[in-house]
Structures are given as structure tokens and as C-alpha cells.
Design a protein around this nucleic acid. Structure first.
Lengths: 120, 120
DNA sequence: CAGTATCCGATCGGATACTG
DNA sequence: CAGTATCCGATCGGATACTG
């Protein structure tokens, strides 16, 4: 429990930013939660699940997640093409982080409502 | 900060994005870790601690954190002005989330090095 | 089906100058 | 000291058209 010694903030923030780069990107958490709930999803299924996202964004976000080994991309050699995305084994290590963020975010919504009232 | 959030089928992700909006912003985690380690910091002390950040960015990030009740801003009525920032009591609830993100980020750096080699 | 390529307006964020 | 105000280039991300 003593973070004091190791806490050289300039070093630490680099780490958390690495985490953020993967998790953030406006659509990454959404994609990850879908893959968390569904095991495998095709490109078009992700598109349907997240209608607001554009093809371009979906593609780039998936590529980044793949580069970071968070998701697997399986291409079937057939016509028409079929590509399945799934959480990688390494990617499952991210789940608890995502869950704790979601939990905090959920309670924070209520906190903001208490502070400023429910604005919708 | 983008507060417009239509409640689509993907409700769960909205929560995590709320969390992200607070934590993200390129500089927020850095600021928060400094305040986590230091109890109170003046505006100029934060500037010195994070030399790469501009006044403008520091100001807006602090304002957003304040709006979300994560930090307290205490203004001393004196000349020259003195303003102290500190983690709010509510803001301490964010600490475990930040720590888990940092922990994951740290290990992920190593994972990337294993995958692609140490490029620096 | 699963993308890529291109255009382009919107937003971000740095640099600089100014202020109570 | 702790900010604001302005300008402006860089980046983001949507819309649209095209492709193996």
C-alpha cells in the first residue's frame, strides 16, 4: 500500500496514457463491450450493433485494437468475404479495467444529476 | 466534452464513456496523479510539474475536473492571487479506477515490447 | 461482405499577447 | 499569480463513392 516511493508522476502518466490510448478512441469501449458479450462478431454485425459508427471509424478502431493484441481478426478465404472479430486471450485482461470504469461511470451519472439536476 | 448522448440500445457503453470523458482529455490523468500524490497544488506548481502542458489546456482541464466534482478549487482572496487545487472527497472514488488503468497500462507496455520489440 | 480512397467541415490544442 | 483572448495549423471524423 505504499505508492509513495514508486510514484514519479511523469513516469506513471505515460502508463495510464498507454491504457487510455487503447481504451479510448471514442468507439473502442463500445466495440469491446460488444465483443465481451458476443464472443465473435462479423464486421457487419458490429456495424448493425453500433449504427452511429461509420465504416471508416469502425475499421480504424478495429485495426488499432488488433495491433494492440486486444482482439483477434479472423479472415475466411471465401467470396463474399467473411471476417470475425473476437476478444483475444490477452484482451480478456482488460475486462476488469473496463468493468471498473463502467461501474464508476454509471455512478458518476447519478452524481452529476444530484449536482446539476437531470438535464435531458 | 460531449454531453449529448442518445440512449440507444448500447446503453452500457454510455456509462463507460462518461468515465472516459472525465479521465480522458489528454492531460487529466497526469493532473490527477499529481493531485493524488501532493494533496494540494497551486496552478503554477502544476505548470511546473507538467511543463509540456500549456496554460490554456491546464485551465480547461482543471475546469472540467472541477465541474465534475473530482477536484476542489480554492481561491485565496489576496494579491497576487493564490489558487490551490486538490482532489475532492468524491474524487477519491476515482483513485482505484485510475490505479487499475495505470497498472494495466504498465504491463501493456511490456506486452507491446514483446510483440513488436522495444522501439525507442 | 468488408473494406479503401477522397474530400472537407468541425474540433483540438499550441503559440502568443494581454489582464485584474 | 492565475488566468483570458485570439489566431491558426493540425488532426479528427463524417459523408460519399468506389472495389476485390
Amino acid at each position: 500500500m505504499n505508492y509513495k516511493k514508486e510514484n514519479h508522476p511523469t513516469d506513471n502518466c505515460a502508463n495510464i496514457e498507454v491504457a487510455l490510448d487503447i481504451i479510448v478512441g471514442k468507439w473502442k469501449p463500445v466495440i469491446l463491450f460488444h465483443l465481451l458479450n458476443n464472443e465473435k462478431l462479423r464486421f457487419s454485425e458490429l456495424q448493425r450493433a453500433i449504427p452511429e459508427i461509420s465504416k471508416k471509424m469502425l475499421t480504424t478502431q478495429l485495426r488499432e485494437l488488433e495491433y494492440h493484441d486486444i482482439i483477434d481478426r479472423k479472415v475466411y478465404a471465401q467470396v463474399p468475404p467473411k471476417v470475425e472479430y473476437s476478444l483475444s486471450e490477452y484482451g480478456t485482461g482488460l475486462i476488469p479495467v473496463l468493468l471498473s470504469m463502467r461501474k464508476w461511470g454509471l455512478s458518476h451519472i447519478k452524481h452529476l444529476e444530484q449536482l446539476y439536476g437531470n438535464t435531458n
